[in-house]
Design a protein around this nucleic acid. Structure first.
Lengths: 198, 198
DNA sequence: CTTTTTATTGTCACTGATGACAACATACGC
DNA sequence: GCGTATGTTGTCATCAGTGACAATAAAAAG
């Protein structure tokens, strides 16, 4: 009985708008009013469906975590996991907005005590997924070595996206990709005059 | 004649407070009121000496740029420039707050159009300084190779500081340092069971 | 002591964002 | 048509941050 609920649909609509606003205004700059405008709803409606700002923020982080926390570990047919990782971390076709949002969360975690554990969790899950893929495709590598490489790959990827979003020329991308393939133990595509591990 | 000016002293006092506030509250979270409290002045005084928020922000960025823009290229006795770079980029004794502030500026530049060019400038100056040091200590390396390595070293350093400030355990630091030494063409200190370039 | 320059304090209106809540509208089962 | 649960709109007080400016206090020169 009663009117049918639009909660699920509206919540999705709102959370998508939050993502876009975070990318556009940063983790501190997004507001309920901007989200409402972006979602084409009134602020009252936003509040009605997702509660106050803190609750909405938590909801968004939770969603992006479940959506992308295990992303890197997802099975992709019979392809080598490391190739999948490389593509998902560096391919421009990847969901840019989600990466930017994760980046914003990590950045703001630096000065928001409550977020720090959450950010650490995100990071560790990503690193673990990468490490799994590496260990699978390079059975000879020890755990120590795999973790170190996974860590460095993640630093490389995050730094790369940060710089890319700042509008740097793309000519540095190739060096980064070469290094990434090397870290993952993948063969280089184009024989470069630069030695692989440099 | 007239009362002696405290402008220089007060401006320093205020800019220091801005730095601490940026580290504590982020590039969006610092306010004139917080700066005033941190500097132990009234907000009116802050406004009196440094103008409005935008002007203060620009002043701070300008100062940190001139203070640290050429930092990596500074001469340090007869030591190899690459060693100096390594130390300044990764040594915990380096001015942490200034790195955190630069990091905050770069992070907020992502969604603030006006800041993007400035951030790019900061980045390019740092990269150029690193590249100079590398080329000096490794005369055989070509320009292409040096730039790629400088870029990767900077990504590594920024990512490393980001993660460190999130409170990660220090056990990943060693892998990062090993990679940094390798990128710079420096010999490894401790013979590790991990091959240098992995 | 007076003038002049600057420091310092205090107050005002304005804006953007928020939380709370009342009021109205709509769709479904019966 | 009626009851009911939900969607939807609108309004209110409040709060933090800001910019502008008036008013007062202090220190130097003459």
């Amino acid at each position: 009985m009663g009117r049918p609920s639009k909660a699920a649909e509206r919540t999705e609509q709102i959370l998508d708008a939050v993502g876009r606003c975070i990318v556009r205004y940063g983790m501190d700059g997004w507001t309920l009013e901007r989200v409402a405008k972006e979602a084409d709803l009134s602020r009252s409606l936003v509040r009605h469906f997702v509660g106050n700002r803190d609750e909405l923020s938590a909801l968004f982080r939770e969603r992006i975590l479940t959506r992308y926390g295990d992303m890197l570990g997802a099975d992709d047919g019979g392809r080598p996991p490391t190739e999948v990782v490389l593509e998902k971390l560096f391919s421009p076709s990847a969901n840019l907005d989600d990466y930017a949002a994760i980046d914003a969360i990590l950045a703001s975690a630096r000065y928001q005590d409550g977020l720090r554990e959450e950010a650490r969790d995100i990071y560790l899950r990503l690193e673990a997924a990468i490490a799994r893929a590496m260990a699978h495709d390079n059975p000879g590598w020890g755990a120590q070595r795999v973790q170190g490489r996974a860590h460095r790959l993640l630093l490389l990827a995050f730094g790369h996206w940060s710089m890319t979003s700042l509008g740097f020329p793309a000519d540095r991308t190739e060096h980064v990709l070469t290094a990434a393939r090397e870290l993952l133990g993948l063969p280089q595509n184009t024989p470069s005059h630069e030695e692989p591990c440099g």
